[in-house]
Computed example of a mutant assay.
Amino acid sequence: MAIGEHLTQFGGFDVTAWRPGEALPDPAMQIARLFVEWDDEQSWVEQFRAFLELPGVERTRGLVVGWWGVDDSEAEPVDVVEALAGARERLPELHVLFFGDVTYEENEVSWIQNTDLSPLLAAYPRLTHLGVRGGNGLTLGPLRSDALRHLVIQAGGLSSDVVREVMTADLPNLEHLEVYLGTENYGSTATVEDLTPILDGARFPKLRYLGLKDSDHQDQIAQVLADAPVLDGLHTLDLSLGTLSDEGAAALVTSERVRRLQRLDLQHHFCTPEMMARLEALGIEVDLGDAQDPDDEWRFVALGE
């Protein structure tokens, strides 16, 4: 599964591509995606400066950071982070931010070079929705926010350090947590043990959607979660896009906590037809789309490269 399309919605807003010279998108309904193309004469930071001069920009409630690395795709976007953080007084209403809306035509997800994003969290403490794509060089620092409700991190492989930053975060109002853990082939060093801080359900008491997905350790994750108290407050458990097989699914079908969910997302899996039938009999909504060959010795995650 390569990411071939840009975001069309995020944080309850429609996402619209903005180019220099255009008017400000409607702040009530739209957020702008700022990006560079190969033939652009202006850098991302230069385009952002022009954006900040638009009449009414102070009413902007969200922003999507698109591709920034035309000159050097391996350079960390430190200047982008600095520009954004430095604009906090010009963007006092910003509470929705997606950093790295980059498709495979611009850069494969496993090649995206990220950086320390903690200055953005410090500059915009009112963020309710944060999305990040790209795990190389990524760090979030100590995550503390009473405002953040929705957190998404997409990568072909996340480091253990980043996963632990998320799992030990102080986010008392977090409702949606979606983490693409990825595969060792593309830089993942995370282990099932890194998930331990959230298992008792106390760290994120308002969590309703938990996505621990796209992992080559999906069976072990399913086994650890199947009887974890964190499930008691959830509406949806998302273990999709990884290498889930009958081994992990067996723990799910025997779990009373799983049966109390409203939705279980397992699309892109390696379960046998017999196990799929048992999952469908759980009495809840179960997504078993994109079934792979359970006899395939070379199991793969959906989003790697």
Rank of each mutant, 00 (worst) to 15 (best):
M1I: 00
M1S: 02
M1P: 01
I3V: 14
I3S: 08
L7T: 07
Q9R: 04
G21F: 04
E22R: 14
A23I: 09
D26G: 15
A32M: 00
V36L: 08
D39F: 15
V45L: 04
V45Q: 10
Q47V: 02
A50Y: 01
E53I: 08
V57L: 01
E58Q: 13
V65Q: 05
W68N: 09
W68I: 11
W68L: 10
A75R: 08
E76H: 09
V78S: 11
V78H: 11
E82P: 12
A83G: 06
L84Q: 02
G86Y: 15
H95I: 06
H95F: 08
F99K: 05
F99V: 07
V102C: 05
V102G: 05
Y104Q: 01
W111L: 08
I112F: 02
I112T: 03
N114I: 08
L117G: 14
L117C: 15
P119W: 08
L121C: 03
T128Q: 12
G134P: 08
P142I: 02
L143V: 11
D146H: 09
H150K: 00
I153R: 12
Q154A: 13
V162A: 04
V162W: 01
R164N: 13
E165F: 10
V166H: 09
V166E: 12
M167C: 09
T168V: 06
T168M: 05
N173H: 11
E175V: 03
E175R: 05
Y180G: 05
L181G: 10
L181Q: 09
G182N: 03
E184P: 00
E184K: 00
G187E: 02
S188Y: 00
E193M: 10
D194F: 03
T196H: 03
P197Q: 04
I198Q: 06
I198D: 05
D200R: 03
R203N: 01
P205G: 07
K206S: 00
R208P: 02
R208E: 04
S215H: 10
D216E: 03
H217K: 09
D219P: 13
Q220M: 03
L225G: 12
L225M: 10
A228R: 11
P229T: 03
D232N: 10
H235L: 15
T236F: 02
L237P: 12
D238A: 14
D238M: 11
T243Y: 00
T243E: 01
E247L: 15
E247Q: 15
E247F: 14
V253E: 14
V258Y: 05
R259Q: 13
R260I: 04
L261P: 06
Q262F: 02
D265W: 08
C271V: 15
T272K: 06
E274D: 14
A281S: 15
G283T: 13
D293K: 03
E297Q: 05
W298S: 15
V301F: 00
